[in-house]
């Protein structure tokens, strides 16, 4: 298969980027999207050029490192798929493919398609945990949790922190990420004691990190590779309101 790539090139965070065109030739139909880029890079290196930089690691859709916006859609058009799990058989021979980084003010470009998502870590450090020390835990079966609650918490916890939700959002809002993280713990009895603190602190950290706010477009839900539900956003709004009221009155 042959493609024409329109790729965002940017030498570093301070320089201005631009779109550059590359041919992708003789790509096997079984190749993954990133393997297609590997082949293109191999050619660029052979021609003495500078290869296209992009983040990737596990290449099995779980680490959340890969982060390409393909034809305007973070992780591409296939539903519930990370960039690394996207395969070329979903494209047509001769297609022109636009490849850009995950764009957001809070995700500054480091080089080419690589962005800095450390803002997510700062949000988690603000309260996305249960304050329990190693060794202090009661028996695992001491607190029964209904299967429904456990499954619900799991569904939120599958978030891989890739940032596609932010990249897809017209407002660069991180609400889907933050709400998934908060509601995973807020759903469980283990997370209950810190529920209010968690909601207030994580939202504050989110605002400080430079993300926009949610205006309920659900673009985030549409591109999420793990199909995290925007129900989490509603839950965080509710938890936040309740926490704010309790804090004001307590």
């Amino acid at each position: 298969m042959n493609f024409t790539l329109k790729v965002w090139r940017q030498n570093d965070g301070d320089s201005k980027g631009h779109i550059e065109e590359y041919p992708a030739e003789n790509i096997p139909i079984e190749a993954s999207f990133l393997e297609m880029l590997d082949i293109v890079n191999e050619k660029i290196i052979g021609d003495g050029g500078s290869p296209i930089h992009f983040d990737h690691d596990c290449r099995e859709g779980i680490c959340g490192m890969c982060s390409l916006t393909i034809n305007g859609v973070p992780h591409g058009r296939e539903n519930g798929t990370t960039t690394c799990q996207l395969h070329m058989r979903h494209f047509d021979d001769g297609d022109t493919i636009w490849i850009e980084p995950f764009r957001a003010g809070a995700f500054p470009v480091i080089r080419d398609l690589v962005v800095d998502r450390s803002a997510f870590d700062r949000i988690i450090a603000a309260g996305g945990y249960v304050s329990v020390r190693t060794g202090a835990a009661p028996d695992a079966n001491a607190i029964p949790i209904t299967k429904e609650d456990a499954d619900h918490a799991f569904d939120s916890a599958t978030c891989i922190g890739c940032g596609a939700c932010v990249a897809a959002c017209k407002n660069s809002s991180a609400m889907l990420f933050v709400s998934a993280k908060a509601s995973h713990l807020n759903h469980l009895p283990q997370g209950a004691p810190e529920k209010d603190r968690r909601a207030l602190n994580m939202v504050q950290a989110m605002d400080e990190a430079g993300f926009g706010n949610c205006s309920n477009h659900y673009e985030c839900e549409a591109v999420c590779p793990k199909s995290i539900s925007a129900d989490n956003v509603a839950k965080l709004n509710r938890d936040y309101a309740a926490a704010a009221v309790r804090k004001a009155l307590a």
């Binding site: 249960v130 009661p138 695992a140 209904t146 299967k147 456990a150 916890a157």
Partner: peptide, 14 residues
């Protein structure tokens, strides 16, 4: 025990 107390959502029975 440690993981459950951290909120790891292991599979559960009904």
């Amino acid at each position: 025990d440690q993981c459950v107390s951290q909120g790891v959502p292991f599979a559960r029975e009904y």
